[in-house]
Every structure is written in structure tokens, then in C-alpha cells.
Nucleic acid binder design. Sequence first.
DNA 1: CGGCTCCGTCGAAGCGTTTCAACAAGGTAG
DNA 2: CTACCTTGTTGAAACGCTTCGACGGAGCCG
Lengths: 334, 334
Amino acid sequence: MATIDDVARAAGVSASTVSYVLSGKRKISGPTRSRVEQAIAELGYRPHAGARALASSRTNVIALMAPLRVGVDVHVIMQFVAGVVTRARDFDHDVLLLTQDDLGGLDRVTSGSMVDALVMMDVEAVDPRVPLLASQRQPAVLIGLPQDPAGLSCVDLDFEAAGRLAVRHLFAAGHRDIALVGSPPQVLDRHTSYAERLLRGFRTQAEASGMSAVVEPCEPTPAGAYRAVDTLLEQAPQTTALVVHNESALPHVLSRLSRHGRRIPDDLAVVAVCPTDVALAQAVPMTSIDLPAEAIGRLAIDMVMARLAGDQPAETRLLAPVLTERASSRVTAP
Amino acid sequence: MATIDDVARAAGVSASTVSYVLSGKRKISGPTRSRVEQAIAELGYRPHAGARALASSRTNVIALMAPLRVGVDVHVIMQFVAGVVTRARDFDHDVLLLTQDDLGGLDRVTSGSMVDALVMMDVEAVDPRVPLLASQRQPAVLIGLPQDPAGLSCVDLDFEAAGRLAVRHLFAAGHRDIALVGSPPQVLDRHTSYAERLLRGFRTQAEASGMSAVVEPCEPTPAGAYRAVDTLLEQAPQTTALVVHNESALPHVLSRLSRHGRRIPDDLAVVAVCPTDVALAQAVPMTSIDLPAEAIGRLAIDMVMARLAGDQPAETRLLAPVLTERASSRVTAP
DNA sequence: CGGCTCCGTCGAAGCGTTTCAACAAGGTAG
DNA sequence: CTACCTTGTTGAAACGCTTCGACGGAGCCG
């Protein structure tokens, strides 16, 4: 491998000049610059990442901690990750992937100076990783909203507003008896913050609008979805609209409803909270509140970079929910 | 941050001794070792990854190139990734995530000495990345099977055998008219190697067994699945069994069949090729040939490590398919 | 024409490890 | 008692880059 000295020699300059051409931190004259650039091209030179990290205390790598256990919301996770990785590349950074359960990984990549910053997905309301993260010198951005951000930046969809929005939409369409098919019980038990926030928004808005609202947690399996639907139709048969916040259960909820002879949207309107592509991949195109996972991932990187660049303080950004009406809640005949 | 010199001072030894304690490359006496270990613990010392990489030309990082575009086979991808990351940790390595389309990324991480080796997913029959990879000095393992591995290691499910196995299973159950609901046309067009291999196995075994076999590519959308099913039932109404190799379309294929009044397995037997958890997440538990993505990911790391450790030559490993019978192809009444 | 400023380039000092050759100290053999 | 291994430890030289202070030369002003 060619080193910076090889390049310097080939270009007839000193190593530091090559470094400055590469970093742009000092002005280099046109002719010199092009000699250096040519030498770089000819030798196929790439700076050694380790050497660079050692000298500059910058690795140009971001750690991303993602929940890789399969099960819930694979699409959402993939889109987050895609957003993070591609946006990081825009800033000339790479992404080191950590699994959610690798608690030690935080300290490892951080104290070992492997990364410049961290992005952590799927933060729970009370999350042991948050204090850990807060004590590191690298900046971090949380995707999600813990009870106490401990001085870290956060970004997420405003799930509480999403819950309210879904309810308002159904209210406007004339519904007065609604239900929420929600996250799996164990997700709620973990106090995953998004599940609770959506639930809160759903409840408060329904109450404010004087609607009757029931809530049914739902396992992300066919059987779980069937059970939830069956329970719902039995205990609240007057229900005319559903909010579904459970990506994996969604198709099974729909098929169970159709098995019960409930037509969508004629007998029952449905609003889903999920990525747009999931909403469109259902038997009936779903009215949905988009979970803009890729955009959030990108935004997380923007926030990380802002903190790396300057003296930005930590900030929390909640994205306003957007509802797109599709066939599943369209008012069909007047 | 504490450095190795701090530790050395605290333990009353030289820096090299600390290094040797850490690496175990030389014998260190018991007392010395424990003094050093205690100093490390007290100072919370972590070696600086960059410095280490510079001095040893080893980063303990593996690059993983994964297709992050959402669409096909999200589950499969996630499981691969999970397998790779967790297994890499067993070898004290971390994973740097590259996107499929980041062609330049190969050269960047490789020439920049950011990683010790690479794992590349979703390799196509003729893949521009393969020659690129082959020209780097870091070892690489491909998940998939290109026409010309160019001296790289490969690992994958033996899709051709899987195709044959599915057909043999159906033959044994008495079926003589079968069909394959396959990958999306654009996947076949890309000559994604697994799609073609499964197809080949399916065709040759059907021919060998004297069965009539039709093939229908299928978009990974509800509409695509409906279209495929409709076409199939119209053009080959005598079909009594289906092989489905298309994770995203699977639920829609099933629901369309039921819409057409075909009951599973009584009117139509179905064998799916997909991860077990996907097979179990359908309305009817599917007889399936498992796509052991996580295991393949782990295996890829084992192979990478073998090559890093020694002088193992490149090898190709195809995993034998395993079929698990479930409700969707069970012979119900005699 | 002397003194200043500004511009572009350079030399050298780190950055924190690993690793090799060398070296004391103690043990064994002759 | 000397010569020679062994064993455990050390010092110093890389590894390849960034960055700071310095420096020579050109241009400007008075």
C-alpha cells in the first residue's frame, strides 16, 4: 500500500502538503494541488484509517445500535438503518453496527475510540443504555423518547400526536365507537416509549371528543391477531373504526375481519400506523399515518453531525405525523 | 483516556509488558500479570483501536455489505445480519455496515485498512463486485453463489437441492401437476443466483419425475400475488400443489387462493421456501424448506475467521435443505 | 529601498500501540 | 566455577497520519 510519503515523493512535496491537500485545512496553490492529486490517483493512495484516527482523534465512523432480534417491525428497522447508513455516507462517515443487547459494545466502541458518535434505536422509556451513553464523551442521538434523555438528543415520530390525529380523522368521518389494536403486551410491558405515547394520544383525544374507545393489545402473530379481533368484535360489537399500530399483525387483522364478514371500509374503517410501503402492501390500501423511518434515520445523522461539527446543544425533535387517506377509511357512498 | 503508559506506570512495568498481558503473545509471570490486570481495571483502560490497527495491521472489524433497499425478503436480510454480527462478536470482531449499492465502499474500507475482511450478501450470478473483491488483499466470503467465485469463499443454501426436495416431497404426496410461484421478474432478470438455482432444481426434478410443472414469476405485492394466482388457476387449473419461493407474496398468495375457494391443503398443497418464522406466521402453518439465514450468517463469519487465522484456501459450502412438514401440505384424509 | 504582511510550503513532534532484539537474573550442566 | 540456557521483562523502533510553529519569498507601502 502506498503511504502519504510515497505520494509526497511522487509529487515532489512534503507529506504535510499532501495532508493539507486532502483535508483542505490550509490553502495550497493550484499547481501543487494538481501535482499531488495526480500522484494520489496514480498510486491509488488511500489514507490509512487507523493512522488517521490516531493522529486526528476522528474515525469518521458512527456506531448504530439496532434491535436485530427478528419479530417486530422488521421493515421499520431496515428503513431506519438504510436512512442512517446512506445519510452517514453523505457526510463521509461509515456505520458500525451494534446489536441492541450488546451493552458492553457501547463502552467498547466508545472508550476504544472506534467511533465518533452513536445512534441508538428503539429506546425505551427507562433505558439502561441511556445513562451509559450519557457518560461517554462521544455525542449520541436516540431514536425514541426516554423519560429522561439525560442531555442526549432525541428524534422520533410524535406518536402521541399520531394517536390524536388518527382519532380526529375517524371522528371527522363520523365514527363514535373506535378501537385500537396495539402493540404486543410484552412491548407495552417493556415500556417501549412509542407504544405508550401512541396509546396516550389515542385515549386522550377519544375522551376529548367524547368517543367510546377500547384498546386491545395484540401479539404479532396470526393467532394473536385473530384473538384480538375476535375479542374486539365480541366485547365491542358497535365499533365502527379501528386504529392498528402493529405492523406484523396488520395483514392478519384484516383477513380476520374479512372472515367475520366485516368489509373495509364499509362496515369498518381502519387506520394503520406504519411505513407507507407496508400500508400499500395490504389487501386493501390502508389509510395510514406514515412512520417515516428512513427520514428519521437520516435526521438522526444530521443531528449527530451537527453536534460533531459545533457546539450545538442536545435537542429533541418530534416529527409531526401525516395521515394519508386511502381505501381503508374512505367514505364510500353518501 | 488512560493510555497503555498510564497502565504501565500504575503497575510498575513497561508498556510492552502491558501489551503482552493483553495479547497473550508472550508468557508473563503470575504476579506481574495480576498487577497489570488490576491497573487496567482501576484505570478503566481500553486500547485505542486506531493505534492498535496502525501498529498491528489488524482492525478486528469485518465489513458486511447488505441490501438495505426495502422490498424483498426483509426477514431474511435481518436474520443474516443478526447472524453475522453476533457471531463476529464471538470472535471479538465488530461489523461495519455497507450498503449494496455503495460500490466504492469496497475499495474504501479495504484500501483504507478499515476492515480485516468482508462478507457480501445477495451475490448475483454475474456480479461486478466479485472481481473488485477478488482483487483486494482482505479475504472475503460471499453469501450466494456467483458463476465465477474468482477464488472467494461462498456459502449459501443449496437452492437447487431445495427445488428438487420440494418437488420430491409433493411427488411422494401423490401430486403430479405442480407449479412454482417464484421470485419477481426483476429478481430473475438480475440473475440473482438463488432464484435461478431454485428454478433449475424445480424444473429438473419435475421433469425427472414426469410431472407437469408450470412456473409463474410473482411481484412481491398483493396485486402481483393476485395476478400470479389468477393466471395460474386459469392456465393450469389441474394444478394440485404449489411451491412458493417469495416471502413477501406468500400471505397474498394464500389469501387469494382462499378467495378462489381453494382450501389448503385439501384442494391445493403448498410448500414455501422461506425462514421458519415466516412459514409459521401465515394463516395456515406452512410446510416449508427453511432458509436458515441466521445460520448462514454465522457460518460466513466462521469461514472468514478461518481464512484470517490460517492459510485455509477458499471454499464453497452449500447447506443441505431441510423440509419440515406442516399443515399446508399434510395429507388430511386417506 | 527597507520593513511588513501575507501566502504557500515544510519539518518535526506527536498520537497509542505492537513487536523485535536484547538483556538481566536465575537455573542447569559440565 | 564458568559457560550456557531459560524465563520474564524491557527499550526502542516502527506503523502512517495530522497539525503546529516556522520559514522563505513575493508583494506592498511609505
